[in-house]
């Protein structure tokens, strides 16, 4: 069982093509990292998988456990087990974090079913403690007036509460100091299990010191051009992306 991205071509609706035949398979139980230079299509990839209305898929497919999700609304994809930790989480003034997460969980229940409040808060507090989030967080509005670090912690908290099968973390490390990075990484690592697969998108190797990926992929020009083990991230960190571009250029000439 896996999340399969098959020959994916996507563009901004009526505009520029950004993904050019991207292939990737994220198996349950594995963590894949995607790295790449600015403008290579990293954030577009995460939005296209989640079904952002600004993008359209022109060819290829995305399969979740064998089933195409391209025809599904973003909320249906979420309820089917897909989670995106946003690079820039949105603020929702007036809606408390506790109510927001409860609404998201309730949306997963069958009609007529209700979330059990005591159990919900027990779970919420447990996950918050793990992420070192203070209790007054529950009554604050979603991301409203949050620091960059608080927003990212909130993303990981929501992920821990919604318990997705597949998660995409879009530059979750950006804007985090080292202490916050450790806490957030520990939160992600706590979710690691044979029933959870993740795609970690990052610009820097730093995050991968704390969330050790099983595979590392390099995204350039809208497709995966190189794949390897965790050691590839270190190589990219020391050598940059130019050597990959050169490697790409050679077979094209041949």
């Amino acid at each position: 069982m896996s999340l399969i991205i098959k020959n994916l071509h996507a563009r901004v609706v009526g505009g520029q093509t950004i993904l050019n035949g991207l292939n990737l398979e994220i198996e349950k139980g594995r963590i894949h990292a995607v790295m790449g230079p600015n403008g290579s299509g990293k954030s577009t990839l995460s939005k296209v998988i989640a079904g952002h209305p600004d993008y359209e898929v022109t060819a290829g497919d995305i399969l979740m456990d064998g089933k195409s999700i391209l025809g599904m609304e973003p909320d249906a994809r979420s309820r089917a087990g897909l989670f995106l930790a946003f690079q820039y989480p949105m603020e929702i003034p007036g809606v408390s974090n506790a109510n927001f997460i409860r609404a998201a969980l309730s949306a997963r229940l069958a009609e007529g079913e209700e979330l059990e409040a005591t159990e919900y808060y027990a779970d919420l507090y447990e996950q918050m403690d793990r992420l070192e989030i203070p209790r007054n967080f529950t009554s604050r509005s979603v991301n409203d007036g949050f620091s960059g670090g608080e927003k990212k912690r909130n993303e990981v908290l929501q992920m821990a509460m919604l318990k997705p099968t597949y998660a995409i973390l879009d530059e979750t490390d950006s804007g985090l100091d080292i202490d916050a990075l450790k806490i957030v990484s520990a939160g992600v690592n706590a979710l690691r299990s044979p029933d959870f697969g993740a795609l970690v998108i990052t610009h820097y190797q730093r995050l991968l010191d704390y969330i050790t990926p099983d595979y590392v992929h390099v995204l350039v020009g809208g497709k995966i051009v190189h794949s390897g083990g965790p050691e590839l991230a270190l190589e990219l960190e020391s050598k940059g992306y130019d050597w990959i571009r050169e490697e790409m250029a050679e077979p094209a000439l041949a």
């Binding site: 989640a50 973003p74 909320d75 949105m90 929702i92 609404a103």
Partner: peptide, 12 residues
């Protein structure tokens, strides 16, 4: 904002 909430499973 709507997309963010939809990504958490809420309908539009």
């Amino acid at each position: 904002q709507i997309f963010y909430m939809q990504q958490r499973g809420l309908s539009e």
